[in-house]
Design a protein around this nucleic acid. Structure first.
Length: 305
DNA sequence: AAGCGTATCAACCGCTGAGTG
DNA sequence: TCACTCAGCGGTTGATACGCT
């Protein structure tokens, strides 16, 4: 038994993607939509494995992706959610719709861990909850506690999905945009990265022929740049690609069952809107946010509330 | 200017869980 | 129920950009 590796075939190209490959991939996705990644290399002739295609799309080519220059608000969200969820980057990314899990993961590993260590060494309270003792190993300093909380409270996956939904609703109910004051669109550190938008522009024709977007959610109080906990990155048109009519279907946050689909299920959406009152987890979230807000003005978590 | 060390990030690898027949 | 496929996730790696001497 066992699944054969998908990328060990002869002739499968590895390494950095070329602009030509990006164009092919984006063209295909504009035409057929994301998903069915298995068929992408076959249909496009790309000498890439399906996994590589999916990764390239989700981490790089999707519209609306914000790159670089994390704001202090975003840092706060990441730190807070990392303390809550652990290294569940996809889940954390669902709260930062314009950031990819890979980007957040990289930023955590390269910036925030150090920053946290430094701040904790200085006795600052930027860090996650007081109950958490900074791990000497750097990461994973506390998330086990929170994992346990979540697991015990609701069961692991379901509990997180539940929490995500409710917290998202709480956030949505606030109306205020956590990131309304976020820094302007970060400049890409990569010259090629910025060319992605150009690729998208080149593909304007494809986008216009894309399937129509799903009906909008019943209510949406966000501005374009707001955090959209209930909206996926793909449903948003980035500032750099605002002219694109291409819009993927609304997705569930990553915690919603852990799968990122492109078909937004109205039934699921309705269920989200009829969630039970605050669970212990939300209460904990509230408490955490309140504590952080009190303890550190800069890194408080108003973005959550 | 060259060499070296460090930081950054795109991409890969392997595992897991959901879906399907 | 089982075998199998596939998409997604998180950890890790490697290339390269950057900064310092």
């Amino acid at each position: 038994m066992g699944r054969p590796p998908c990328c060990d075939k002869l002739g499968v190209k590895k390494g950095p993607w070329t602009p030509e490959e990006d164009i092919i991939l984006v063209s295909y996705i504009q035409e057929h939509g994301p998903g069915n990644w298995r068929s992408v290399p076959v249909s496009t002739g790309l000498m890439r494995c399906s996994k590589s295609c999916r990764l390239r799309w989700t981490n790089y080519l999707r519209t609306g992706i914000k790159r670089g220059n994390f704001t202090s608000h975003e840092e706060g969200v990441i730190v807070h959610l990392q303390s809550l969820l652990g290294n569940r980057w996809a889940a954390i990314a669902s709260y930062l719709p314009r950031r990819t899990d890979n980007d957040i993961k990289n930023y955590w590993n390269t910036h925030l861990k150090k920053k946290l260590r430094k701040q904790q060494a200085m006795g600052a309270t930027f860090a996650p909850p007081a109950s958490s003792s900074p791990g000497t190993a750097g990461d994973n300093f506390d998330h086990h506690n929170h994992h346990d909380m979540v697991s015990r409270a609701d069961g692991y996956g379901a509990g997180q999905a539940y929490m995500n939904k409710e917290v998202s609703q709480l956030i949505a109910g606030r109306g205020h945009s956590p990131f309304a004051d976020a820094a302007p669109e970060a400049c890409s550190s990569s010259s090629y990265a910025s060319s992605v938008d150009n690729i998208s522009k080149l593909l304007g024709g494809f986008m216009k022929s894309s399937p129509p977007p799903p009906p909008p959610p019943p209510h949406n109080n966000y501005d374009a740049d707001d955090v959209k906990p209930l909206l996926p990155l793909d449903s948003m048109s980035g500032t750099g690609s605002a002219e694109l009519s291409f819009t993927a279907s609304v997705q569930q946050p990553a915690l919603m069952g852990g799968r990122v689909g492109y078909e937004y299920d109205d039934e699921t959406k309705q269920k989200q809107q009829h969630q039970a009152p605050l669970s212990s987890i939300e209460k904990w979230l509230f408490d955490e946010a309140a504590d952080l807000e009190l303890s550190d003005e800069c890194y408080s978590v108003p973005m959550l509330f």
